[in-house]
Nucleic acid binder design. Sequence first.
DNA 1: AGCATATCATAAGAAAAACCGATATTGCAA
DNA 2: TTGCAATATCGGTTTTTCTTATGATATGCT
Lengths: 304, 304
Amino acid sequence: MLWVIPVSTAHLRLIRDVAHHRSVSKAARLNHLSQSAASQAIAELERELEVSLFDRGRRPLEITSAGKLYLEYCKDVLRRDDELRASLDVLKKQMNGTARVAAIYSVGLSEMSEIEARFAARFPQAELQVQYLRPERVWEAVEMDEADLGLMSYAESSRELVALPWRDEEMVVAVAPGHALARRGFIPAAALQDQEFIGFDDDLPIQEQIDRYLREKKVTVQVVLRFDNIQMIKEAVAHGAGISIMPARVMREDIRQGRLIALRLKPAELYRPVRIVHRRRKIFNEVTSGLLDLLRQEDTRHAA
Amino acid sequence: MLWVIPVSTAHLRLIRDVAHHRSVSKAARLNHLSQSAASQAIAELERELEVSLFDRGRRPLEITSAGKLYLEYCKDVLRRDDELRASLDVLKKQMNGTARVAAIYSVGLSEMSEIEARFAARFPQAELQVQYLRPERVWEAVEMDEADLGLMSYAESSRELVALPWRDEEMVVAVAPGHALARRGFIPAAALQDQEFIGFDDDLPIQEQIDRYLREKKVTVQVVLRFDNIQMIKEAVAHGAGISIMPARVMREDIRQGRLIALRLKPAELYRPVRIVHRRRKIFNEVTSGLLDLLRQEDTRHAA
DNA sequence: AGCATATCATAAGAAAAACCGATATTGCAA
DNA sequence: TTGCAATATCGGTTTTTCTTATGATATGCT
């Protein structure tokens, strides 16, 4: 049993044209149909609606009052259809031509602009959308499909997301220019013994890693302050509140400007893993998979 | 080559339900379809639109941003569809249950209320819409299908309209109660010789008929005033401006109230033909053809 | 009025599509 | 990993839609 009338936009266009040109055959031609098919379609529609839309008993045919109502319906739906197609086109263009990346702050603007430059060279037409977020928001953004790729440290694959290796950033000791250790380029872990130390919040993976390292080296430090982000730690170190350990990369600008000094740990064994994160089984568009290639080929493990 | 996607409201309902329940199989059940058919329909739609509406690669499935756009489209169109159906239902009820009549003023309210009473007795559920118009507007209303039946005098069939006989109303001489002729019940045409006469406009059929009659009887009258409608003529006669000739029927109330007196012409040969007019090949609803029967069976030719 | 012409309706068969049942594949959770 | 439930796919059938050919009808012209 058929409950709904299978009226398609093709039908709507046909009816609209019939009403406009007051002719079935002309409307049929305009819609690439035989006159017969058009006639049948209209008759069928009228049968199903149980009203006559046109008075075909005179020529040129006349539209009935029911036909007028239906005509308005046709126009409204076709207008809405055009709207839909327009917005889908916009969306498609975006979806095919842009890659959306969410990155933690400490990946850094300067890092990103390098990547953006190479991306732009490879995909001149494409757009790269980057948003900087707190780590948990990066994860969320990828999970919610608000971003195609996420760049974040200490990420682990989960049921929802895959974490691919990207960089292992060497961690160094950050000191203020006036600090006692400031003149030495390399130091052993032991040199940190009893230093006033500015750490990350206890529950952050980076702090867990630092704690594990110091424990292994049997070094204890005096934690004087804790923050949940690198920016604050850098500021505190620069103000001489103590020393810290952080990825060398995030200090580059501060070193150049003389605000901070980096001391490399003698056997270099401490690295912050930064990973590329994406949804499992996600089908990337061309641009995004291109970007992914780009990122993975510069996979500079154990790089400064 | 297929240019338009044959999407029906059935499809729209399906998509809407899939989005709402986040399940193809549930939506399929709700729409009395097999899971297979639903799956194919969605896949086909996505193929044609060149976007994916749902991410079926996870469970429960997720709606994409294109899917959200499409969902809004579905809801809008389905809402518009409901609207259409509602207004068509109202229209159908009206069309099946009402007869629309356009009548000239001089058919008279009292005449019409008689007819209405008999109509109401025969079709208790039905509605009778009567509008009183000037003669040319009655013709127009029927021609434009604004009225199903027209009641007007001196109508002739044309290419567009058919005129059926209805009544031949006896024409009488109208005089004011104080007039010299007022005491006589019957008069010959000759009695009108040189009387001050109030006529219709020259180009009206009724006046042509009166002129022809007087010419035949070799009677001349002094036309002192002309109007294009009976109401004004009655008023002028009542005020003693002169006598006139008009259908007896339209004077009934004025006679009862003593405003006018009717003198029958001795050989009664002057009749105003009132006709029922309708569009050629018009298909009447039950109520209207019932009304037509009613009118034609009381076809009182040569009646007062 | 009757004929000519353009238009619409109808019939029958062909083409296209939508649909179903069965089965393979896949995502997810235990 | 295995099992379960949901989705995709395949092959074949049914239903719908379309086309061509032909019949009916309205209108205009002679």
